[in-house]
Amino acid sequence: EPLWIRPDAPSRCTWQLGRPASESPHHHTAPAKSPKILPDILKKIGDTPMVRINKIGKKFGLKCELLAKCEFFNAGGSVKDRISLRMIEDAERDGTLKPGDTIIEPTSGNTGIGLALAAAVRGYRCIIVMPEKMSSEKVDVLRALGAEIVRTPTNARFDSPESHVGVAWRLKNEIPNSHILDQYRNASNPLAHYDTTADEILQQCDGKLDMLVASVGTGGTITGIARKLKEKCPGCRIIGVDPEGSILAEPEELNQTEQTTYEVEGIGYDFIPTVLDRTVVDKWFKSNDEEAFTFARMLIAQEGLLCGGSAGSTVAVAVKAAQELQEGQRCVVILPDSVRNYMTKFLSDRWMLQKGFLKEEDLTEKKPWWWHLRVQELGLSAPLTVLPTITCGHTIEILREKGFDQAPVVDEAGVILGMVTLGNMLSSLLAGKVQPSDQVGKVIYKQFKQIRLTDTLGRLSHILEMDHFALVVHEQIQYHSTGKSSQRQMVFGVVTAIDLLNFVAAQERDQK
């Protein structure tokens, strides 16, 4: 057995438009009618409502009807409940999964919650491996369901041993009777949507819809739904939504950006999952974080739909894509998950301010006199920076000697690579993860907040409520011999709460 199987392995699926269902090699399930009293909570997966979006479509000038398939009504709160249950049931049916076995899954959280929910009911041990950027709410729900959680670096490539995929496979090879159901490759993922989600949409719309818009992560949702719609409703256009920084969209030119990270969760990847059939997507749109969270908040405030950030991405694209539809036509959007997962993220004004998705003037509360002053007023001194090749031991000596707790790590040209902190280095040394002679590049981390000289002290204040420091950066445009230009970030300084307090105190003292 291989040590790991690539999540982007070539698909062996034989589905073709027009091929009889009787030739399918898979076990198919028909939607079942729910009894009045459910035998367990797993029976509350599927049969989610279709809700008309009344205000947002009109606000953006849509002539067509805009409908939302509300997947956050599933038992675990997301569309991923469907595939989690289906993968477990299919693994039980073919004898792969037996009582007492362990389920391991690399996930952005929602599939993990679905699997942990099913594992709690069915009696399996469950280990979820997820990147650090995923919300604390997801972690809390997983723990409450009895799952064990392993976190991995957000910026690790999918084929790196440190990625959530790599760590999951390492655990599988170490733990007896453990299984990775593997949402990236498992046919049960798109089949769950082909058999149930798509049929529900067709039934709820009486077979009449002209466009379907869905955000894409593993691709199982859009693949399964689109294949069924292509068979039953061939005139329906399928629109895929991919965040900026991901590479799922086609044509490839759409993916060209210097951005590699994004805040919206559960969609987009740096590889093409095996289950994603991009041939059934008629057109791709890219979405960005700001519009995703703005539209998610709009869905909550104006439509009462308590959905997550990827739902915002989907609707932001839908109001663009559906401009081509006329009166009497219908566009369906998939709202994948609930706001429950993001209470401390985009639902929080403070978080939105820190990330730059909300401006101070958007909030009406009274601010102190210094709130709208610029960061450049602080008069920061030149920063202490270190090269990635310097040793951890030497870096600790320098920081202690100069009285700093942290320093930016830059390359020879001064471009920011990340940050090192005294606390992080000492804990890594004590844990045996690094040696004093190791290069400081081994303990770089990139989960820090950046701020510009033109940003306000109010925004800085919000950042420092949650973080010990902020890195002050400025952009530099560099022209190359080819005539092309590129933008790079340079370090201007490091600012802490002490710097802000000293500035405010000094100004008030001078005024007296």
Results as ranks from 00 to 15, higher is better:
253 E>M: 02
467 D>I: 02
329 Q>R: 14
303 E>A: 11
507 Q>R: 13
509 R>I: 07
474 H>T: 15
426 L>I: 10
360 E>P: 02
494 V>P: 09
313 S>C: 09
445 Y>F: 10
376 Q>A: 02
488 R>M: 14
462 H>L: 11
427 S>C: 09
504 V>K: 14
329 Q>N: 07
435 Q>T: 15
418 G>L: 04
281 V>A: 05
440 V>P: 10
494 V>F: 11
506 A>F: 12
325 L>G: 02
353 L>V: 12
391 T>W: 02
412 E>C: 12
269 Y>N: 07
432 G>H: 14
389 T>L: 10
454 T>Q: 10
263 E>N: 06
292 A>Y: 06
285 F>M: 04
449 K>F: 09
419 M>V: 12
484 K>L: 13
468 H>R: 11
304 G>N: 02
456 T>S: 08
478 Q>E: 08
369 W>M: 15
468 H>M: 15
241 V>P: 05
386 V>K: 09
321 A>V: 12
408 P>K: 02
509 R>Y: 08
404 F>C: 06
462 H>W: 15
270 D>W: 02
441 G>Y: 14
488 R>C: 06
280 V>Y: 10
475 E>L: 12
282 D>S: 13
398 I>Q: 07
370 W>C: 13
280 V>C: 14
482 T>V: 10
490 M>W: 10
510 D>T: 10
328 G>C: 15
266 G>L: 06
387 L>A: 08
396 I>H: 12
335 L>N: 08
290 E>Y: 11
271 F>C: 02
422 L>C: 13
366 K>Q: 15
338 S>E: 09
403 G>D: 13
439 Q>H: 14
284 W>S: 02
268 G>T: 06
345 K>A: 02
336 P>N: 04
300 I>G: 02
473 V>Y: 10
276 L>T: 12
368 P>I: 13
461 S>I: 02
485 S>I: 15
402 K>R: 13
285 F>N: 08
299 L>F: 02
437 S>P: 05
510 D>Q: 02
484 K>G: 08
281 V>F: 08
308 G>M: 04
241 V>C: 14
269 Y>Q: 02
395 T>C: 02
470 A>K: 02
394 H>S: 02
362 D>S: 04
353 L>T: 12
425 M>A: 02
249 A>V: 02
449 K>M: 10
469 F>S: 11
252 E>V: 10
376 Q>I: 04
338 S>F: 10
331 C>S: 06
331 C>D: 02
373 L>S: 02
375 V>S: 09
257 T>W: 10
498 I>L: 12
340 R>L: 06
510 D>Y: 15
262 Y>M: 02
318 A>V: 04
300 I>V: 05
376 Q>C: 14
493 G>M: 02
259 Q>A: 04
263 E>R: 02
349 D>A: 02
398 I>Y: 13
256 Q>V: 14
319 V>M: 13
335 L>Q: 13
275 V>H: 02
503 F>N: 02
271 F>D: 02
462 H>S: 08
303 E>C: 02
317 V>G: 15
406 Q>S: 02
319 V>A: 11
244 E>M: 02
439 Q>G: 09
505 A>W: 02
404 F>L: 13
373 L>I: 11
291 E>M: 15
379 G>H: 07
308 G>Y: 02
317 V>A: 02
498 I>R: 02
430 L>D: 06
444 I>V: 12
296 A>C: 06
307 C>R: 05
392 C>P: 10
341 N>V: 02
500 L>E: 02
496 T>I: 11
349 D>Y: 06
263 E>A: 11
332 V>Q: 02
417 L>I: 14
396 I>F: 09
487 Q>A: 11
350 R>S: 14
442 K>M: 13
404 F>K: 06
490 M>Y: 14
302 Q>D: 12
330 R>C: 13
480 H>E: 11
364 T>W: 15
373 L>Q: 02
292 A>C: 09
274 T>N: 02
491 V>W: 11
265 E>A: 04
438 D>H: 08
426 L>W: 07
436 P>S: 11
452 R>M: 14
320 K>F: 09
380 L>P: 14
389 T>R: 14
393 G>C: 14
333 V>F: 10
470 A>M: 15
446 K>L: 11
380 L>F: 02
491 V>T: 02
244 E>N: 11
252 E>C: 05
275 V>G: 02
362 D>M: 10
389 T>H: 14
418 G>D: 07
392 C>V: 13
252 E>L: 11
259 Q>G: 10
358 L>G: 06
